[in-house]
Simulated assay, not measured.
Amino acid sequence: MATNLPIPIEFSLPAGWRPAPPDEVGAPQAAFVALHPRPDDGFTANITISGEFRPDAASLEAIADDALERVRAFATNVEVSKRKALGTESSPGFAQSVSMTVDVKGRTRDLVQRQLFMAYVDAEDSRKRVVLQLTLTATPGQLDEATTDFHAFIATVQPDRS
Rank of each mutant, 00 (worst) to 15 (best):
N4K: 13
A31E: 04
I7P: 03
V33E: 08
P8R: 12
F94Q: 10
L13A: 13
D41L: 10
F74M: 10
F150D: 08
T139M: 06
A64K: 01
D144T: 15
A20L: 11
P92D: 07
L5E: 04
E10I: 10
E24H: 10
A95I: 13
I63Y: 00
V71S: 00
S50N: 11
V78F: 01
K105W: 04
A30F: 10
M118E: 12
A62I: 04
L5C: 04
R54I: 12
G51S: 03
L68D: 11
E10M: 09
V80P: 02
F53N: 08
Q29H: 14
D160M: 07
I7M: 09
G106A: 11
S91T: 11
A85M: 06
S81R: 05
E69S: 08
A15K: 12
D56Q: 03
T147W: 10
P92A: 08
R38H: 11
A15F: 06
G106S: 12
T147R: 13
A146W: 10
I7N: 02
D122I: 00
I154H: 02
P22Y: 08
L13T: 09
A152P: 03
Q115H: 10
A119H: 01
S91N: 12
Q29P: 03
A73P: 00
A73W: 00
L116G: 05
A2I: 08
F153I: 07
L5D: 03
A57W: 02
D66V: 05
I47F: 15
P28S: 12
L132P: 00
A62G: 01
D65R: 05
S126N: 05
D122G: 00
E52H: 02
D122Q: 05
T101D: 14
E145N: 13
A27I: 05
P55M: 00
K105H: 11
D41Q: 14
D110Q: 15
F53V: 02
S50I: 05
I63K: 02
Q29C: 02
P159E: 06
R18A: 15
V104G: 00
A146F: 10
P19E: 13
T48R: 11
P37I: 08
P14C: 07
V78Y: 01
V157S: 04
F153N: 07
L5T: 03
D125G: 00
F53T: 09
A119D: 02
A20P: 10
Q29L: 12
G93I: 09
T3Q: 12
R38Q: 15
P140G: 01
D23T: 12
R72S: 04
T156Y: 03
A95L: 12
G16V: 11
A75K: 02
E24Q: 15
D149A: 15
A73F: 00
L68R: 09
S12Y: 04
L35H: 08
P55I: 01
E61A: 15
D149T: 09
S12K: 13
I7S: 03
S50T: 14
A62Q: 10
F153D: 06
F32M: 14
P37F: 08
A64V: 01
D160S: 09
T148D: 14
E69N: 09
